[in-house]
């Protein structure tokens, strides 16, 4: 795909990008490595978790993807915002169009890059899961059940793309790196919560995009805790698979269309 080739050429000697990518992969590894310690502190239900089971197949897939989804949220958004805003700061988006890309190709190129980045992150996270799972299973591997929950990795992939696309939309809207990063996290942690609490009845807030995306990798304690307490299904979240995946993909497509419309109607 020549659009990916162009994007790659742009990044080939961009140190900031490679450093950010490196840190994000490193933090995926470290989060996984320290995760048994974290789990004690994060949640009151955590004391119910047997730390030796944290790394066991097949539950490791859900545990690690949930944990690393925070690294995902943080780094993919910062990387995407930096790269997109750079194109405005350097006016290279203008030059790319002058040189021959259509505005559609401009958007498609970045979307392909986001998908590529998400794929790389997912692949790395999957490898980390596999390695930790194999190390901690201490030879007692149940091969048949090992990949039972591997679908979490697919959700993780969709989630990474979704976060990247929200970042792309916000960066396109504001054009400036610092402002966009702030707005991304303000939207994620403040605006959606306010809309949820103040304006939406019942479970409708679950349909807000960032809420929905973060539930692609659900908090593993909830279920574990419920099991331990013998309460059966314990879910605070009203949307289940595969509806959640379908909705996430619909959002991704809608955000992509939104970005394209913004750029199409804008003077570069």
């Amino acid at each position: 795909m020549y659009l990916l080739k162009i994007e790659f050429k742009k990044l080939s000697s961009y140190l900031t990008f490679w450093v950010l990518l490196g840190i994000s992969l490193l933090s995926t590894f470290l989060l996984t490595y320290w995760s048994t310690e974290f789990s004690f502190r994060i949640n009151s239900a955590a004391h119910l978790i047997n730390t030796t089971s944290w790394y066991q197949f097949p539950s490791i897939w859900g545990n690690v993807t949930w944990l690393c989804s925070y690294a995902n949220l943080f780094f993919i958004s910062i990387i995407v915002i930096t790269l997109v805003c750079n194109e405005y700061t350097f006016k290279t988006i203008r030059q790319n169009v002058i040189d021959g890309l259509s505005k559609f190709e401009i958007v498609l190129g970045k979307i392909i890059l986001i998908i590529g980045l998400s794929f790389a992150m997912t692949l790395f996270t999957g490898t980390v899961c596999l390695v930790f799972g194999l190390i901690y299973s201490e030879g007692a591997i149940n091969f048949s059940g090992m990949f039972n929950n591997v679908n979490y990795l697919g959700d993780f992939f969709i989630q990474a793309i979704a976060y990247g696309m929200v970042a792309y939309f916000i960066a396109t809207l504001f054009k400036r790196t610092g402002l966009s990063i702030v707005m991304f996290f303000v939207y994620k942690s403040i605006i959606e919560s306010i809309i949820d609490w103040k304006f939406l009845p019942n479970n409708l807030g679950d349909y807000l995009p960032m809420n929905l995306f973060s539930e692609l990798t659900p908090k593993p304690f909830a279920q574990t805790a419920a099991n331990a307490l013998g309460k059966g299904i314990f879910s605070m979240y009203s949307i289940t698979s595969p509806t959640i995946e379908i909705l996430a993909i619909v959002y991704i497509i809608a955000i992509g269309a939104g970005v394209f419309l913004l750029i199409k109607n804008r003077d570069l």
Partner: peptide, 20 residues
């Protein structure tokens, strides 16, 4: 308008890739 962190050569390489 060019990528400041890329060399002259690599910047032209991007243009050439866009123009295929």
């Amino acid at each position: 308008n060019f990528y400041p962190y890329l060399s002259a050569y690599k910047n032209l390489d991007v243009v050439a890739a866009i123009k295929q």
